[in-house]
Amino acid sequence: MSLGLLIRNLIYWLGVAVLTPLCFAGMFVFCWLPRRKRHIFGQTWAVSLLWLLEHVVGLRYRVVGAGNIPAVPSIICSKHQSGWETLALQKIFPPQIYVAKRELLWIPLFGWGLWLTNAIMINRSDRANANRQMLEQGLARKELGFWITVFPEGTRVRPGAPGKYKLGAARMAKQLDMPLVPVAHNAGEFWPRNAFFKHPGEITVVIGEPILPEAETGPEGLMKQAEAWIEARQREIGGVGPYADPKERAARRACVQPA
């Protein structure tokens, strides 16, 4: 860890400490605004932190497949490796809400912001009611014109380790008649789980063609399609960051060896 990287990370965290109370205080003060208007504060917070990451830490990103983003509200089905994607997806896609575990509501400011922005908060220990809540609240959000972001693995998974994909996103796509948009990225190679330090580099985000909920395809089939596409892209873009999986790094090096 160089002194320069330490200083850049400290500046980033100072920005977090300043921007977080300002943006979320604004959300509380203007909680009477329509739901779409409240999202301006959350999006401002996310975009501001992305700017700090890029221009202070040096953590950039590129998007492949932006043309695949549908023109109608859809289900964003994204890989989950770090905290970075919770920020970046808000800039890459139209206004959206998250499906998140209920425990996050107890995090000061952040959890309260989730509540004010109408996130779908579920109790993961009560699976039957969680599925019902996702569908009922998902329909209400769709009617308001929101996209819905789901991390199908349910938790952050380290690079190179496939998680267990749950069916919630596919069930919502099927029953709410919404396209399912798969998203792969390698953010965890630069921003590992629960890490204080973020590392410079370039994150790659790949957006796939929307998977339409065909009548003959059930939630299991939809999720298998999404999982297969996401994991294939993960292998293609992995192995570049300081926290990359050793096997993916070795595979990438082997690909670039001179003949």
Score class of each variant (00 low, 15 high):
residue 1 M to S: 14
residue 2 S to L: 15
residue 2 S to V: 11
residue 3 L to H: 14
residue 3 L to R: 15
residue 8 R to A: 06
residue 8 R to W: 01
residue 9 N to Q: 02
residue 10 L to K: 08
residue 16 V to K: 09
residue 16 V to Q: 12
residue 17 A to S: 14
residue 17 A to F: 12
residue 19 L to Y: 07
residue 24 F to K: 02
residue 28 F to N: 10
residue 36 R to T: 08
residue 38 R to F: 05
residue 41 F to M: 00
residue 42 G to P: 02
residue 47 V to P: 05
residue 53 L to C: 01
residue 54 E to Q: 09
residue 55 H to P: 00
residue 55 H to M: 04
residue 56 V to Q: 04
residue 61 Y to M: 00
residue 62 R to D: 11
residue 62 R to I: 11
residue 63 V to K: 03
residue 64 V to Q: 13
residue 65 G to Q: 04
residue 69 I to S: 07
residue 71 A to P: 05
residue 79 K to N: 10
residue 88 A to M: 07
residue 89 L to D: 01
residue 90 Q to N: 15
residue 91 K to F: 09
residue 91 K to R: 13
residue 93 F to M: 10
residue 98 Y to N: 13
residue 98 Y to W: 15
residue 99 V to L: 14
residue 104 L to V: 10
residue 104 L to K: 09
residue 105 L to W: 14
residue 105 L to K: 15
residue 108 P to W: 07
residue 111 G to R: 06
residue 117 T to Q: 09
residue 117 T to I: 11
residue 118 N to Y: 10
residue 118 N to K: 13
residue 119 A to I: 02
residue 120 I to K: 07
residue 121 M to T: 08
residue 122 I to R: 00
residue 122 I to M: 01
residue 128 A to F: 14
residue 131 N to S: 11
residue 134 M to V: 04
residue 139 L to E: 14
residue 140 A to S: 12
residue 141 R to P: 00
residue 141 R to K: 11
residue 145 G to N: 06
residue 148 I to T: 02
residue 149 T to N: 10
residue 149 T to D: 02
residue 149 T to C: 10
residue 153 E to V: 00
residue 154 G to E: 00
residue 156 R to W: 03
residue 158 R to M: 14
residue 163 G to W: 08
residue 163 G to P: 04
residue 164 K to F: 08
residue 166 K to D: 11
residue 167 L to C: 04
residue 170 A to S: 08
residue 172 M to F: 08
residue 175 Q to M: 14
residue 176 L to V: 06
residue 178 M to H: 00
residue 181 V to F: 05
residue 182 P to D: 05
residue 183 V to T: 01
residue 185 H to Y: 03
residue 187 A to Y: 01
residue 193 R to K: 15
residue 195 A to S: 10
residue 196 F to A: 02
residue 197 F to Q: 09
residue 197 F to P: 00
residue 200 P to Y: 06
residue 202 E to M: 15
residue 202 E to P: 09
residue 204 T to A: 13
residue 208 G to W: 01
residue 211 I to D: 00
residue 212 L to M: 14
residue 212 L to Q: 11
residue 216 E to A: 14
residue 217 T to N: 13
residue 219 P to Y: 02
residue 220 E to S: 12
residue 221 G to Y: 09
residue 222 L to M: 12
residue 222 L to E: 09
residue 224 K to A: 14
residue 228 A to H: 13
residue 228 A to K: 15
residue 230 I to K: 04
residue 234 Q to R: 13
residue 236 E to V: 01
residue 236 E to M: 02
residue 236 E to T: 07
residue 238 G to E: 04
residue 242 P to H: 07
residue 252 R to W: 03
residue 254 A to L: 11
residue 255 C to T: 15
residue 256 V to G: 07
residue 257 Q to G: 13
residue 257 Q to Y: 12
